[in-house]
């Protein structure tokens, strides 16, 4: 299953490896080279979109661990990102601490806040937990708006990221910073998913009764999932703060939280590839929508007023609905099917 013809496993190490064949390695290295040379042939705008995707990906990977693997619905992810963003903003902006300190503290702070809001998960599941985590969203934003250290409603400016005197002040340097961290996060998440902790998470998701009887401490692992998921959200928040340069609580609305869930679902819950595909899909779609109204208005001046600008969100909705109807198991599942059929081609079985 799942291997190209003629590839056999002669050791468990090989069976467990992610990259099995020379082709895998070649493609993987080619992809990494392609990604890390992007600044050579992309303009600032495309790099900006890529940076946004990288930041979003880190947060989505976190949510995927929480929701996709451990099955704990969190509708407050944007709130946890906000915790990270503001922690980094305050530490590096107000207290002028180094970027890396801010980054780690942002992750830890978001993780701790996540732990607190994860406590209801011990008693409630599914949509009930979802409702409980919505509270996190509102409480966090309320605090940000009413604390003076966060700049209240006005917001807070954030300096560029810098490591040891090197300032990430161009889009390209930020791209390297963000992509490196994003690649590391995906790598960590994939490893976590395929080892002991990951199996415990999936066990809790699929059958929490059996998981407990098989010796998995639900209390510990549910909270661990919240901690890891929110830690990554905090890391993403820190990068977002340094990238945009200005934080305002309104940037972390509940619709952002829902969008993150959408990305994880569309990409494919509980797969390493899922968040990557989901983030690329949603962010590209959003960027596309950004262009579509001006294009329609200039191409068809006779359109009734408001039609062109109304079509973008409609199209956005239609594409997502179509997606959920036609591929409810996410893009990563579609990718697996494609790979399988590609390997068997031209035979039908």
């Amino acid at each position: 299953m799942g291997l190209p013809c003629g590839t056999y496993n002669y050791s468990y190490a090989k069976d467990m490896a992610i990259l099995r064949t020379k082709t895998h390695w070649a493609l993987f290295i080619a992809l990494l080279i392609l990604v890390f040379t992007a600044p050579l042939y992309c303009d600032n705008y495309l790099l900006g979109v890529a940076n946004l995707m990288g930041i979003t990906l880190i947060a989505a990977v976190g949510l995927n661990i929480l929701l996709g693997y451990c099955g704990q619905l969190s509708i407050g992810h944007a709130g946890f990102i906000a915790v990270g963003a503001y922690t980094a903003a305050v530490l590096t902006g107000t207290f002028e601490l180094p970027f890396l300190v801010g980054l780690i503290c942002a992750g830890l702070m978001a993780g701790l806040v996540g732990l607190f809001f994860g406590i209801p998960s011990l008693k409630v599941k599914g949509f009930y937990l979802g409702i409980a985590t919505i509270a996190a969203q509102f409480i966090i934003i309320w605090f940000i708006n009413h604390l003076s250290i966060t700049g209240g409603f006005t917001g807070i400016a954030v300096p560029y990221a810098s490591i040891g005197g090197f300032v990430f002040d161009t889009e390209a340097s930020q791209f390297y910073l963000i992509m490196t961290i994003a690649v590391l996060c995906v790598f960590f998440a994939k490893n976590l998913a395929r080892t002991r902790i990951g199996r415990a998470f999936v066990a809790i998701r699929d059958n929490d009764l059996a998981a407990e009887v098989m010796g998995i401490n639900l209390f510990y692992y549910k909270l661990l999932a919240f901690f890891i998921g929110c830690f990554l959200a905090g890391i993403a928040g820190s990068l977002l703060a340094h990238w945009i340069g200005f934080m305002n609580a309104e940037q972390f609305s509940i619709s952002e939280s829902i969008l993150y869930i959408g990305m994880v679902i569309i990409g494919g819950m509980g797969s390493a590839l899922g968040p990557i595909l989901g983030v690329i899909f949603i962010r590209l779609l959003q960027q596309g929508m950004m262009f579509i109204a001006p294009m329609l208005e200039s191409a068809f001046p006779a359109l009734p007023a408001g039609f062109a600008s109304g079509i973008a969100p409609m199209l956005f909705g239609v594409v997502i609905v179509l997606f959920l109807v036609l591929e409810p198991r996410g893009l990563s599942h579609r990718w697996m099917l494609f790979k399988a059929s590609y390997r068997l081609w031209p035979f039908s079985y």
């Binding site: 902790i197 066990a203 998995i216």
Partner: peptide, 22 residues
């Protein structure tokens, strides 16, 4: 998954993977 109680990895060694966890 049932080996859970007999394994010793934590989330740090698990996410690093190479070495001990492997």
């Amino acid at each position: 998954a049932a080996r859970h109680v007999l394994m010793k990895q934590n989330f740090v060694s698990g996410s690093l993977y190479f070495g001990w966890a492997h």
